[in-house]
Every structure is written in C-alpha cells, then in structure tokens.
C-alpha cells in the first residue's frame, strides 16, 4: 500500500516537473527570450541603421531584388543587384549564377559582409520563396525569364 502511494507520488512529481518545464519553455519563447537572438537576417533598413557596427562583420541580409537592378556579367560571372525592403536599399555584389528562381522582385537572403564602400559582398545567395502558389498567367513563361537573363553563363 505504502509502496503504491510512493509510486503515485513519484509519478506526480514527474507530471509536475513536466508541466513546469512546458510552462517555462513557452513563457520564454512568448516573452521574447529568443525573439531578439534568432534573427536569421537583417533587412536593408536594419543593416543601414547599425552604422559602423554592421560593417565588415559576417551577416545575413534579406529583402526583395529591386526590379531592374540586376546586372549580370557573363564574362566575369559578376552579379550585381540591389536589395530593398521598402525603406532602405543596399547594393549587393555576388559571384556566379544564382539559383533558378532568382529574378526581379523575388525575396533573397545573402550571406556575406557589408563593405565600407557601401556594397554588400555576398558569399552565398539564397532565394526566399513566398507561401504563394499560382499558375502562370496567360502567355507568361517565368522560367524563360531566367534563361534569357542567364543563358550565356558558362558552367
């Protein structure tokens, strides 16, 4: 009998410990313990707002490719474009052909360093896809856009 009640107590202690951990984890998450630390990328405005603190340190920058800003040199494999967030804009330099879905207006995240000359040197370029899934409009051939932009790129 006493053995059984001892077991019950042990079990209850586990349940209480579990509930405490659950509550603590959620509290921590909801009240922003991680909020400030888990920032996967900075927007152009945030990067610019950091001033010299944001210069020449490894950082990720995310935003949209400014329409009309993409310049690709198929000889040197230099890729230049501007990342915007509606507030600020940052010039980005990257090397090599970007992922297939890179195009005007697309979300991108670049890893690299913001130089003193105001150009972000990207070592890695990722395309951020939105949660929108749409069939192409009549006559629209989006995949051709990439091909016409980057078809000259040697391997």
């Amino acid at each position: 009998m006493s053995d059984a009640s001892g077991k019950m107590k042990g079990r209850r202690r586990w349940a209480v410990a579990g509930v405490v951990v659950i509550a603590a984890t959620f509290g921590w998450l909801l009240y922003g313990g991680l909020d400030k630390n888990v920032v996967f990328f900075l927007t152009p405005a945030e990067l610019l707002a950091k001033g010299t603190d944001g210069v020449e340190v490894p950082v990720r920058l995310g935003g949209q490719v400014k329409p009309g800003s993409v310049a690709w040199d198929d000889q040197t494999l230099d890729l230049n474009f501007v990342v915007v967030d509606g507030v600020g804009e940052v010039k980005v330099h990257s090397t090599g052909a970007p992922p297939q879905m890179f195009r005007d207006g697309m979300g991108v995240i670049v890893e690299g360093q913001f130089g003193r000359d105001g150009v972000f040197r990207s070592s890695s370029l990722m395309v951020k896809h939105s949660n929108e899934y749409r069939p192409p409009a009549e006559g629209q051939r989006p995949q051709e856009m990439y091909k016409t932009l980057f078809k000259e790129s040697p391997k």
């Binding site: 998450l29 920032v39 996967f40 995310g62 995240i109 951020k128 939105s130 949660n131 929108e132 899934y133």
Partner: peptide, 20 residues
C-alpha cells in the same frame, strides 16, 4: 511566424491557387 526564416510562412487557401 515568431522568427524571420528562410522557410516561407504556412500556406493558406488565400495564398494557394485553388488548382493546388
């Protein structure tokens, strides 16, 4: 939703074309 991620937000019927 809580953090900025490379992964997109959850899709919903308003972001996904009825065809999908």
């Amino acid at each position: 939703k809580w953090w900025r991620t490379l992964h997109q937000l959850q899709s919903s019927p308003s972001t996904v074309d009825p065809a999908y």
